[in-house]
Amino acid sequence: MNKIQIIVASALYALSGLIQAAGLPGPIVSTDWLASNLANVQVLEVTGQVKSFIKAPEFEIDKKTGKKMLVDAGGHIEGSHLLNSKDVRVERLLDGDKTKFLIPEQADFQKLIQSVGINSNKPIVIVPIGMDMSDVDEGLRAFWQFKVYGESNIAVLDGGLAGWLAEGRAFSTAPAPTAVGNWVAQAANKDLIATTAEVVQASKSGNIQLIDSRQPMQYLGINKKPDVAGFGHIPGAKNFAPELMSRSVDGALYFLKPVTYAAVMEANGIKPKEPSISYCNTGHLAAGSWFIMTEILGNKSAQLYDGSAYLWTKQGNKLEGVPLN
């Protein structure tokens, strides 16, 4: 090997090392990994509690152990961008009818993500608050929409902001960046989105399993959310409740191991590797079961029913549940 070849080989080796360092280890990253790679990624906090972004977190001292405990998450990881989860889903025309809670059109989602300063060709790490499965699902809903529009270099922080803070890591209360990014959305991957017609067919045939991602009281029809025009679940659906999707450590929620998720699903009559459609009330909590199925268990035949029970009942379809007084 001559001198020029040695120089070129060394340069390529160094470049490959940089690329590997900047890449994501998988769909979930730990706080240790993120702390070591902050310069190589874009951190995107997704929350509806936007005021907490510039408010200091609250801690208290456990009187028995003397340990500093997180009471309320606040602030953000240094350099984070802020995405209001209330802007992630929109009202738009569907079959000529105004319908809420839907994924934005390609151009609108691209504009939203650019407006919070996210760029193309650099890994994105989504950070939910991480204290309740509902706020974790805010981040996972955004993750699903990124996937629909072609983003593959993306992950979620295990434990979220709460886990970061509970470990005593540094935080900032500076305002969110105002620079506009250049992130580009690709054509929608419709394989990730289930339509009402597909859900009707799945309900009738049983060939595709339906996963209801709500709490048991809503699944059974004992109570309901105002946006859903009926009590109970889509006929044939199995329940995978939010409280089964994570474990709590020092006030922060963490994902379970794949083998644990598989066992929990089997116990609820759900086949982890079979084609599935996740839904909830409006398409928010369903992102949790979709993420677990697709990104943790590797089931690439999983879909999310956008609009969920709200859309199902809006279009005149029936739910079933337990008898009510």
Rank of each mutant, 00 (worst) to 15 (best):
Trp144Tyr: 12
Asn119Lys: 14
Ile124Leu: 09
Ile126Tyr: 04
Asn153Gln: 14
Ser115His: 03
Lys147Cys: 00
Met131Cys: 01
Lys147Leu: 01
Ile103Trp: 09
Asp87Val: 06
Gly150Leu: 02
Ser80Val: 14
Pro123Cys: 11
Asn119Gln: 11
Gly79Thr: 05
Ser115Ala: 14
Val156Asp: 01
Ile77Trp: 11
Asp132Phe: 12
Leu94Tyr: 11
Glu78Met: 14
Val148Ala: 02
Ile129His: 09
Lys147Ser: 13
Val156Ser: 04
Lys122Arg: 13
Thr99Glu: 09
Phe143Cys: 01
Asn84Asp: 15
Asn153Tyr: 07
Val136Phe: 00
Lys100Gln: 12
Ser134Val: 15
Pro128Phe: 09
Leu83Gly: 05
Thr99Cys: 00
Arg89His: 08
Glu91Tyr: 00
Asp132Cys: 04
Ser152Lys: 15
Leu94Arg: 13
Pro104Cys: 09
Trp144Ala: 00
Val156Trp: 02
Ile124Glu: 11
Glu105Pro: 00
Val88Cys: 03
Gln145Phe: 00
Ser134Cys: 03
Ser120Asn: 13
Lys147Phe: 00
Gly117Leu: 13
Arg92Met: 14
Phe101Glu: 04
Leu112Phe: 03
Ile126Trp: 09
Ile77Cys: 10
Ser152Met: 13
Asn119His: 15
Ser85Trp: 10
Val127Cys: 03
Ile126Val: 14
Asp108Thr: 11
Gly150Val: 01
Ala155Ile: 01
Leu94Gln: 12
Asn121Gly: 06
Gln106His: 06
Gly130Cys: 01
Ile129Tyr: 03
Glu78Phe: 06
Leu112Trp: 02
Asn84Cys: 05
Glu151Gln: 15
Leu83Ala: 06
Ala107Val: 09
Arg141Gln: 06
Glu151Asp: 10
Leu157Phe: 08
His76Arg: 11
Gly130Val: 08
Asp108Val: 12
Ser85Phe: 08
Trp144Asp: 03
Val125Ala: 07
Val156Lys: 00
Val127Tyr: 01
Gly139Leu: 01
Asp97Ala: 12
Glu105Ser: 10
Leu83Tyr: 07
Arg92Asn: 07
Asp87Ala: 13
Trp144Lys: 05
Ile113Leu: 13
Ile77Asn: 09
Asn121Pro: 06
Val148Leu: 03
Gly139Val: 03
Tyr149Thr: 00
Leu112Arg: 08
Arg141Trp: 03
His81Asp: 07
Asn121Arg: 12
Ser120Val: 05
Val127Ala: 07
Glu105Ala: 08
Val116His: 04
Ala155Tyr: 02
Ile126Thr: 13
Gly117Tyr: 06
Phe101Arg: 04
Ile124His: 01
Val88Trp: 05
Thr99Ile: 10
Ala142Cys: 15
Val88His: 06
Leu93Met: 15
Lys86Asn: 15
Pro123Leu: 09
Ala142Lys: 09
Val127Pro: 02
Lys122Phe: 07
Gly96Phe: 11
Gln145Ile: 15
Leu82Lys: 02
Asp108Ser: 14
Pro104Gln: 10
Arg92Ile: 12
Pro128Thr: 09
Lys122Ser: 12
